[in-house]
């Protein structure tokens, strides 16, 4: 008998007489309320992203986003920028002056890059999480290898809850589906040495989100 058939036979023998009713009802237990409006979702996302150790820049349009990206690059003193294949990221980075731009296929370059820029397919207000899907963009290594990750997010893509995000992603592996869906909440972190928090252990030590929100009212000075 194959391992498969033997294991399944053992399971069936073990379960004889066992029954458990299916877990009925909505799995959205514990989902936060009050995230119905876009403004509420933006506010909650911002709060939770910051709590998770991410940085946020809110801008009203692509033009300002490009400026924000330039500022982040300059602040970091980044000389090599790795870009995902998102058209938006391409457009924003076109105005960068100075740094060397490499694309997501250049693995050796990615290992040396100072900053990686990607888009974001969805975000989750409940947890301040970015959701990156591979069906839309080549984003796995760009968002992971460089010490800084800048992610560009549209306010409309902020969903309320984890459940909403799980409903929005397409993780089936065939065709245009996402082979990998990555949920990111803050920088890479560890506390494995005497429980002291250190960021940037394997992934980025800095996560910055440029949030494009046309409804954003800049605070009056």
């Amino acid at each position: 008998m194959s391992a498969r058939d033997e294991i399944l036979a053992r399971i069936r023998a073990g379960l004889r007489g066992a029954n458990a009713p299916p877990a009925v009802g909505s799995p959205a237990v514990g989902a936060p309320d009050g995230l119905d409006s876009p403004a509420e979702r933006v506010a909650a996302f911002s709060r939770n992203l910051t709590a998770a150790g991410g940085h946020l820049r809110v801008v009203r349009g692509a033009e300002q986003a490009a400026i924000a990206l330039g500022e982040l690059v300059a602040q970091a003193g980044a000389r090599t920028i790795a870009l995902s294949d998102s058209p938006l990221v391409g457009r924003l980075s076109a105005q960068l002056d100075g740094p060397e731009l490499i694309d997501a296929t250049d693995r050796a370059g990615l290992l040396e890059a100072d900053l990686g820029a990607s888009g974001v397919q969805h975000a989750i207000a409940e947890t301040g999480t970015l959701v990156l899907e591979t069906r839309s963009e080549r984003n796995r290594l760009v968002s992971l290898l460089p010490p800084r990750h800048v992610a560009v997010l549209h306010a409309d893509d902020i969903l309320a809850t984890l459940g909403d995000a799980l409903a929005a992603v397409d993780p089936g592996g065939t065709g245009a589906a996402s082979r990998a869906v990555t949920f990111i909440s803050g920088p890479s972190r560890t506390a494995d040495i005497e429980l002291v928090l250190v960021v940037g252990v394997h992934g980025p030590r800095e996560l910055s989100v440029i949030l494009i929100d046309p409804r954003h009212e800049p605070p009056t000075p």
């Binding site: 947890t127 993780p171 990998a180 869906v181 909440s185």
Partner: peptide, 10 residues
């Protein structure tokens, strides 16, 4: 609230 990363691999 959530760990830094979750990878859903398909």
């Amino acid at each position: 609230r959530l760990t830094s990363y979750q990878s859903l691999l398909s």
